[in-house]
Amino acid sequence: MKRGHIIALGVFIALILLVSLGITFVGKVPMTTDVRPLGLFYLKNSYFGNYAARSPEVVTSILWDYRGLDTLFETGVFFLAIISALALFRIEKKEEKVKEKGEGFTFIVKDTVRIISVLIVAVSAAIALHGHLTPGGGFQGGSALAVVPLLIIVAFSKYALEGRGLTKDTAMIVRSIGLISIIILVLIPLAAGGYLMQNLPVFPSHILGQLTSGSLVFYNLFEYIAVGAGFTAVFLLLSIPEKVFHKIIGGEKE
């Protein structure tokens, strides 16, 4: 870094600090210690009351009920990020296997990964499907699920996944199915004479005596599938060796 750059950076940081201090003290940002009226409403009405989402977990009821549209489109942003990455680094030709010498990890690592993977699938499913009861939800569960392919890539190789049919393309198809299911969930209330993204009373709050909080459990389920598959696709993309990209797309080398 040149000296001028350091000075410029220093001035910049000082300016930011100055402005934020200015906003705090001169601008008199209201520093409320109470819960805001709107927040109070959400807290009180997540499970009880006529406007409730029938979910004891306030965050999930805000995410998929009160501000469901934002969450739907944040899902869209995530879809967009991954499809952009896949579009910019698209490899349409069949990529060659890059053979490395050596025997890989010992059986200790490989067997541990086999056992842990099953456990992770179970835990992540629990995080996602209990999203309306306890902290967690589709996105968190899906991110946890995506640890499984990541572990397999590290312990075996990405070709172990692709050899069993889990390629980027299959992951994207699974993802699209998950997302289309979400859109169908959004549209279902129309058929029942309700409003888009409506939760209760279009969806039943209990199924077979189990609390499902209307549509929340379904949103979490499909989000879980979509996010898990999306992360898998991007991990598979990231694990392609750089020399393959150089060969196919071109670009500068070090």
Partner: peptide, 8 residues
């Protein structure tokens, strides 16, 4: 948009 990747 969500369905487009199915047309690979």
């Amino acid at each position: 948009a969500f369905a487009a990747p199915l047309f690979k």
